[in-house]
């Protein structure tokens, strides 16, 4: 049914593609988590002007598609003098989009810590800083893990879009093979298998993490 010889000959391309996917994803996710932390901190601490800016950022990035953001970064910004490599644009794009999702997940985690925990810390004599560091944040981390993991999976999937700015990720490889050799089924087969190999383990780890940290919520 499938040309297995073809499959085995071109599988290495998909490995290369997977490397690109993972490369972009890892850095994009790291940028997203960093951005998310900063934004969640700003919103929770209610810093006056920055807070509004963060809110605008979150609304804008969540209501526009990644593809348009990438095109804007890759084709549009050079006209203003910012010429970045495709990789750079992809990472910034993923980080920009992911940052707002991460921020929301982390903020939810912070807000989910019951007020009584802070009151208990107060009665025991802990300072604000000690309360934040030793009581609130550990609990917030436990609660936000499911959301963060879901976002990680989401971002890896979104990374497939970077093929549109000619980055040689998994999606690009598939498109290329279909275009070049008309071996549609083989290419699609490799496409599906590669993504399953990347995403299934992470999905399973996510479910495991969710269960392990569920004790924080009584």
């Amino acid at each position: 049914m499938l040309d297995w010889a073809f499959v085995s000959r071109y599988a290495p391309f998909f490995v290369t593609g997977a490397e690109m996917t993972l490369f972009i994803s890892v850095f994009g996710i790291a940028l997203a988590i960093l951005t998310g932390l900063v934004c969640a901190a700003i919103e929770t601490a209610r810093i006056p002007v920055l807070r509004q800016i963060v809110r605008v950022y979150i609304e804008v990035s969540r209501n526009t598609p990644l593809l348009v953001q990438l095109y804007f970064l890759y084709f549009g910004l050079p006209k203003l003098g910012f010429v970045w490599s495709a990789e750079m644009c992809a990472i910034i794009g993923l980080g920009f989009l992911g940052g707002s999702y991460m921020s929301e997940a982390m903020r939810a985690g912070l807000e989910a810590v019951p007020q009584i925990q802070r009151e208990n810390a107060y009665m025991l004599g802990l300072s604000s800083r000690q309360t934040m560091l030793h009581v609130v944040i550990p609990q917030a981390i436990s609660t936000s893990i499911p959301g963060v993991v879901a976002n990680v999976i989401f971002l890896i999937k979104e990374s497939s879009v970077v093929s549109a700015i000619a980055l040689a990720d998994v999606m690009y490889m598939a498109k290329d093979l279909i275009g070049m050799y008309y071996t549609t089924y083989e290419a699609l087969f490799l496409l599906i298998v590669t993504y399953l190999i990347i995403l299934l383990p992470i999905s399973i780890i996510g479910t495991w993490l969710e269960r392990r940290f569920d004790y924080a919520k009584r």
């Binding site: 019951p114 009584i116 925990q117 009151e119 208990n120 107060y122 009665m123 025991l124 004599g125 802990l126 300072s127 030793h134 009581v135 550990p138 609990q139 436990s142 004790y215 924080a216 009584r218």
Partner: peptide, 20 residues
Amino acid sequence: SSQLRTKIGMVFQSYDLFPN
């Protein structure tokens, strides 16, 4: 002050301990 707060102990109705 921290010191003052350690002089008064309180037990609440909700038996929340630090879960972590």
